[in-house]
């Protein structure tokens, strides 16, 4: 169980940090839309903005900039980019 506690999701990443997408927990629709916009397991993305008051998160991917809502971000598991 301790592994789960240790898990970092996208909403907890600070602005300016680069991270690697590990897994997307969610329906196929969400997964595919994210993949189409460059948020793909294994790819590295940069968090440009992490808005206030539980707001959305702005990412920079190979495919430009993508905004994801906090609910979506909570379902994206990430790890520090090597």
């Amino acid at each position: 169980m301790w592994l789960v506690i240790d898990m970092l999701t996208l909403d907890g990443v600070k602005e300016g940090e680069k991270i690697k997408i590990r897994e997307i927990i969610g329906g196929r629709g969400m997964r595919q839309r994210l993949c189409e916009l460059g948020v793909i397991p294994g790819s590295t993305v940069e968090v440009i903005k992490n808005a206030l008051f539980g707001g959305p998160i702005l990412l920079k991917t190979d495919g430009g900039e993508v905004a994801v809502g906090r609910g979506v971000a909570k379902r994206i598991i990430v790890e520090a980019a090597s």
Binding site: G29, L58, G64, E65, A67, V68, G69
Partner: peptide, 12 residues
């Protein structure tokens, strides 16, 4: 019913 959440491209 939960909204699917926002996934939106921010073009330059």
């Amino acid at each position: 019913e939960a909204t699917p959440g926002m996934i939106m491209e921010i073009p330059p």
